[in-house]
Nucleic acid binder design. Structure first.
Length: 699
RNA sequence: GCCGACGUAGCUCAGCUGGUAGAGCUAUCGCCUUGUAAGCGAUGGGUCGGGGGUUCGAGUCCCCCCGUCGGCUCCA
């Protein structure tokens, strides 16, 4: 669950997926923290500041966008050219992974990751937020005696702190907590580091009756290491730091919301009350951030999806089942045509298989054993046959493979389908079109020889990159998702896993791609490369994926006939170059702010007659465009042109064609692009340019 | 599933401490005949998410469900 950002030349950092950011001290890092205490505060709007309790060698400056940034680079990998879809792999550039601060050669062995990276904690914004989290805890513990505090790290846009409270806490309690925090800030309580021996620390937290802190002291520290703690007024916390010198150095903060969070991220543990907040180096930045949140809300795919009539959710379909409205279905149809054409051009064989299978099929694949809780309830027929809505396509594609004896000459065999899958996601996990219970996966399974594996992985990555590039998706990163140390969650031998991981790393490296490590993010049957994107609210999720699998071929006894006539076992690559249609569409809605490129726009041209008198000519123009397969809307309402323009703008229609007396006279059209650009031209000129733009899938 | 917030017309929302629902947009119909960011009028539209309860009286208070949103967990 620990990701390591791998980007040579860039400050590395470790994130803990379920507790991102600065977490409680890891044993390996505990001990005396060197450096001067309590430097004088020197912060300003340039965002440099001094930090107490850490050796930073003076002040540091930070440049980052208001979204917190970090992590996502722009346009990973060069050479994006959507107009030359089938490309040769570009020359490789070997990039080493960074583990535990050391560079790892391509033939690395995976080691346990630290939870924590010192560099990470020195980021001034994170220090500010970490310190604000302490102020929050100080306020909560003073307001609600008996509170047990668990942990409170900075996170991307702020911080949180988890509490076990004597009484339930709600949103309405936040203002009072904020007031108490403001008092602490006004008083200027100092952050003082206190170093204790292990026994002293245990003693101290026993006295304070803080079982969660005792857990960390006991878990993480050994006898001969000093334990770092911080005192802020009356509040005393186990913490490695570093911190601001004083609470007075917190210029702007705000508590955002209350949520539940399980102790240690385990749903079988007690659920604690988590309070989220944000903190900034100025009131202006805080306000900018809140404005950005409001803007993100306007771009949210759930909101735009309704406003632009792209999709709808209706309880009556069962939760998490999307209704694709005509506009959305148009976008999806264009995407699918493009995907299928491109895949066929790259040697994929598209198939159509059923959305149900016998339960036995999923027993054999291993999915039933592992995922039955998130599979739809079994349908049992009168004759005892048990059918299941398929949660993924692999078993069906394996059956396609098995319809004939396959020769090495048939390999690689790339079986693809845009097929519906059904998963019984927990109700609280559903989210617009991003997390649903039925979805169409742009899925494929490549059956190949071990020797072909490398090239097939490379090809799958390049296809995904081509799709992203054409769509203008530039902000994503590659995550190599591998096993975590608890191997019981996975099937297969160590050797198989090593081979599979090696193949993925080799492909990434030959493409010169930078990646991060996703420990514990592997599928149960093998490791994978995930393409991580972020939605408009900066939440990260997986769109594309490439997975290596030695297990399914064994479970299903797959074979091919080798040149020497022997029977050999193929390797499988599972890949979703595009992710699901639902998730990708949701992502694109937000990426484009609803203004889809012309080739995808549900309505490409709106024809707006100035008065009823010009309706016949408007019909003629619309008809000529339609004849060329352009998606046209003729607005024949008796309204002002201004109003029609305003509505067309709201609908993000790329081109508005206004026709009035002048156009009828000159047999022209007045074309207004949604960017505001306007020109008068003949229908032929307009149509030619339009068709070219569509054909090239220009954005 | 768990924690928190929310749920009033198709959409966006108003409705103070309980006294049997309102606006704008949309839709329909009519007038206007319009030149690139919103012309005018009329009409229609809600068992206030559902079910219980308290009360003379519940959109408003209490309980239980359902759903949405934000987190947590999960994500083949």
């Amino acid at each position: 669950m620990v990701w390591h950002r791998v980007q040579p030349g860039v400050r590395g950092r470790v994130r803990h997926a379920d507790d991102p950011g600065l977490v409680l001290p890891d044993g390996a890092h505990l001990g005396p923290v060197p450096g001067p205490d309590l430097l004088a505060p020197v912060h300003d709007h340039q965002r440099s500041l001094s930090i107490a309790g850490a050796a930073l060698g003076g002040t540091r400056r930070l440049d980052r966008d208001h979204q917190g940034g970090g992590g996502h680079g722009r346009d990973p990998g060069a050479g994006c050219n959507p107009h030359h879809p089938v490309r040769a792999p570009h020359p490789g550039r070997v990039v080493a992974a960074r583990l535990n601060g050391a560079l790892i050669a391509p033939t690395y062995t995976l080691q346990p990751m630290p939870e924590y990276d010192a560099e990470y904690s020195e980021d001034p914004l994170y220090v500010l937020r970490h310190s604000t989290a302490h102020v929050l805890a100080a306020a909560v513990t003073s307001l609600y005696p008996g509170t047990k505090y668990a942990g409170g790290p900075p996170v991307e846009n702020g911080f949180y702190y988890d509490f076990d409270l004597p009484r339930p806490l709600g949103q309405e309690d936040l203002p009072e907590i904020e007031r108490r925090m403001a008092e602490i800030v006004a008083r200027g309580d100092r952050f003082e580091q206190v170093l204790l021996t292990h026994d002293e620390a245990v003693q101290r937290f026993r006295e304070l009756d803080q079982p969660y802190k005792l857990h960390w002291v006991g878990e993480k520290a050994s006898d001969d290491e000093l334990v770092s703690c911080y005192r802020t007024g009356d509040f005393f916390d186990l913490c490695r730091g570093p911190h601001l010198a004083s609470a007075a150095d917190i210029p702007a903060f705000k508590l955002m919301r209350v949520a539940g969070a399980y102790w240690l991220g385990n749903e079988h543990n007690r659920q604690l009350t988590r309070i989220y907040g944000t903190a900034w180096f100025s009131k202006e930045e805080l306000e900018d951030y809140l404005r950005a949140l409001a803007e993100a809300e306007r771009r949210d795919h759930k909101r735009l999806g309704r406003e632009l009539r792209i999709f709808a959710l209706d309880d009556r379909t069962g939760l998490g089942n999307v209704l694709w409205l005509p506009n959305g279905a148009t976008i999806r149809r264009e995407l699918e045509r493009w995907i299928v054409d491109e895949e066929v051009a790259r040697g994929y064989l598209h198939v159509v298989t059923p959305v149900v299978g016998r339960l036995e099929l999923y027993r054999q694949s291993g999915h039933w054993e592992r995922y039955r809780d998130s599979m739809y309830p079994v349908m049992e027929a009168e004759n005892g046959e048990e059918l299941e809505l398929r949660p993924m396509n692999c078993p069906h594609h394996i059956l396609v493979y098995q319809q004939e004896i396959r020769s090495y000459r048939d390999l690689p065999m790339r079986i693809a389908e845009i097929g519906n899958n059904y998963r019984w996601e927990k109700s609280g996990e559903l989210m617009g079109m991003v997390r649903v219970r039925s979805f169409a996966l742009n899925d494929a399974h490549i059956f190949c020889t071990p020797e072909q594996l490398h090239q097939e992985i490379v090809g799958a990555i390049e296809l995904a990159r081509y799709f992203m590039c054409t769509l203008g998706v530039t902000e994503y990163r590659y995550r190599l998702s591998v096993r975590d140390p608890d191997k019981s969650k996975y099937v297969g031998t160590d050797e198989q896993w090593a081979n599979a991981e090696g193949a993925l790393v080799g492909a990434l490296e030959s493409l010169g791609l930078e990646y991060e490590l996703g420990r514990g993010e592997a599928a149960f049957y093998g490791p994978k490369i995930d393409f991580q994107v972020r939605d408009v609210q900066r939440r990260e999720f997986t769109n594309s994926t490439v997975q290596v699998d030695f297990q399914m071929p064994e479970r299903f006894g797959l074979e091919y006939v080798a040149p020497d006539g022997s029977r050999q076992r193929p390797v499988m690559v599972h890949r979703g170059a595009f992710g699901s249609m639902e998730r990708m569409t949701a992502y694109l809605i937000e990426l484009y702010d609803g203004a889809f490129p012309t080739w995808l726009a549900p309505v490409q041209v709106a024809v707006l007659p100035v008065t009823d008198a010009h309706l016949p000519y408007a019909r003629e123009v619309a008809g000529r465009l339609r004849a060329a397969r352009v998606r046209v809307h003729l607005d024949d309402r008796p309204d002002r042109v201004g109003k029609k323009v305003a509505e067309a703008r709201d609908q993000r229609i790329p081109y508005l064609v206004v026709v009035g007396a002048r156009e009828v006279e000159g047999q022209t059209v007045s074309v207004r692009h949604r960017s505001g650009e306007q020109r008068t031209q003949t229908v032929e000129e307009f149509l030619a340019r339009l068709l070219e733009e569509i054909a090239q899938r220009r954005r």
